[in-house]
């Protein structure tokens, strides 16, 4: 018995690793801090928003998946709902490296906000990509929700249908909308992690 058992164990593979060493943020844990300048030159950090829900939106205006949600106004509607109905701060983050797709000057960013009738609290210009890497933001759009205590409550996609057609939006679950409503009702977020889909962030 001993030998046979030995063999089974030796063959057994509970191949285990610690998670990847790059620390991805974790739901229920304090969200990574950041200190990033916005289009007006003002520096924002997570601590500035203590007591307020914060929504982070990674964006790249030329990414077809971002266009999918801006062109029909889905992203703008969610920005209005988050800020006006939930009192949240909405930070749009651009982590594109200078020279890469999606990288914009402060003026261009403001112009995009105007022309698209967007409604963010601020647009953060994360040229170094430090903030993006701290959140392990991989695609645009990539969404995060941080509660008033600085705890990460949601990370993942903008909605449940990873298609590139705006026509698919109405039938998809809008995860940020659902999460904000659950948080407002004092309930746990039912889907705190989802698959983000889109273009890779151009670090």
């Amino acid at each position: 018995m001993k030998l046979s058992a030995f063999r089974i164990i030796a063959a057994a593979t509970a191949l285990a690793f610690a998670g990847s060493l790059s620390a991805a943020p974790e739901i229920g844990q304090p969200a990574p801090d950041f200190s990033v300048v916005d289009t007006a030159g003002e520096v924002h950090s997570l601590a500035d928003f203590h007591g307020q829900t914060v929504v982070l939106e990674w964006t790249n205006h030329d990414c077809p998946f971002v266009v999918k949600h801006y062109q029909p106004g889905n992203m703008q509607n969610q920005q209005r709902m988050a800020r006006d109905e939930h009192g949240a701060a909405w930070l749009t983050v651009i982590s594109s490296r200078p020279g890469e797709q999606g990288h914009v000057s402060p003026e261009q960013a403001d112009e995009l906000t105007r022309s698209r009738n967007a409604y963010p609290t601020a647009v953060l210009l994360d040229e170094s990509g430090d903030m993006g890497r701290a959140y392990d933001a991989r695609v645009t759009p990539h969404m995060y929700i941080i509660d008033a205590d600085g705890i990460l409550r949601y990370m993942g996609g903008i909605d449940s249908n990873p298609s590139r057609h705006s026509a698919d939006i109405p039938d998809a679950t809008q995860y940020v909308v659902v999460a904000l409503e659950e948080m407002a009702a004092g309930e746990p977020v039912s889907q705190p992690v989802t698959r983000p889909y889109g273009c890779t962030v151009k670090y």
């Binding site: 029909p72 889905n74 509607n77 709902m81 109905e85 939006i169 039938d171 909308v177």
Partner: peptide
């Protein structure tokens, strides 16, 4: 939220037209 739903409805009508 109501505004969002209203907007989404409007959108879906547009999309049906677009899809055809």
């Amino acid at each position: 939220m109501n505004t969002v739903i209203a907007c989404l409805r409007l959108l879906s009508v547009t999309f049906v037209l677009f899809a055809s």
